[in-house]
């Protein structure tokens, strides 16, 4: 039994992580194929571009800074940043932190360096500690929003609460492990198992929304595209 625990640690640190990444990439590939099947290439229109009146061309007058502000206003007016800027900024910060905190964490990079000899830039531990606390606070805000706001509650299912727990658990357990709250060994195993489970299940659950946003904003031709896409639903 004593031998089993170090074995499990080595497994989760090495092959377990590699398996989770492979499952993630396979799932991502499957979803990409599904996306290509669900969309069609847009047909070239025969309309003379000179005859198209764009509202941006009318509004873009004045000096360069005014033009940039006007363009930005037009681009975001009906988006989350236009209709609910507080929620937009909170969501953006949450997703950026969700990515940069584990990737640029010094402890993760030390393990990567010891295992493969490759490591990335790492934030100071104090900074990642603050990032983690911010993530947990925003996660609690999302949970409160889901419970107390009627139009969010009406479409919330057990799946949504479970996904929130699955996403937040690695950060809570990571914080506990770093500060040595509770039993370190138990906490670090929970952290590694749930973290790898979250990576593996991401393409098959609603966590697919993260790569989906790249498909929809860069490949679909719509009013809200960041770049003009060449596909349509």
């Amino acid at each position: 039994m004593n031998l089993m625990i170090p074995d499990l640690y080595d497994f989760l640190r090495g092959p377990g992580f590699v398996i989770s990444i492979l499952v993630f990439l396979s799932g991502f590939l499957y979803r990409t194929i599904l996306f290509i099947r669900a969309t069609r290439k847009i047909r070239q229109s025969n309309i003379n571009p000179e005859n198209i009146i764009s509202d941006t061309s009318i509004a873009l007058q004045g000096s360069m800074p005014i033009k940039i502000i006007t363009l930005l206003k037009i681009k975001i007016r009906n988006t989350i940043f236009g209709t609910n800027p507080v929620m937009g900024i909170i969501s953006l910060v949450f997703h950026i932190l969700l990515f940069i905190t584990p990737v640029f964490l010094s402890a993760h990079n030390v393990i990567a360096d010891l295992t493969t000899g490759i490591s990335l830039f790492a934030f100071p531990e104090r900074v990642t500690d603050i990032f983690t606390i911010m993530l947990i606070a925003i996660g609690a805000f999302f949970l409160a929003r889901r419970i107390f706001i009627p139009h969010v509650r009406i479409i919330s299912t057990a799946r949504d609460y479970f996904m929130l727990i699955l996403v937040m658990a690695p950060f809570v357990s990571g914080l506990f492990a770093y500060h040595h709250f509770l039993n370190y060994r138990v906490v670090i195993y929970i952290h590694m198992i749930i973290g790898e489970l979250a990576i593996m299940t991401a393409p098959f659950t609603s966590l697919i929304h993260m790569p989906f946003i790249i498909f929809s904003r860069f490949h679909i031709d719509s009013e809200y595209s960041i770049m003009p896409g060449n596909r349509r639903w």
Binding site: I80, N84, M87, R146, I149, V152, D160, M163, S206, I208
Partner: peptide, 9 residues
């Protein structure tokens, strides 16, 4: 349906 996170935004 699977990408919808039920955010209600």
């Amino acid at each position: 349906l699977s990408a919808c996170v039920h955010c209600s935004i």
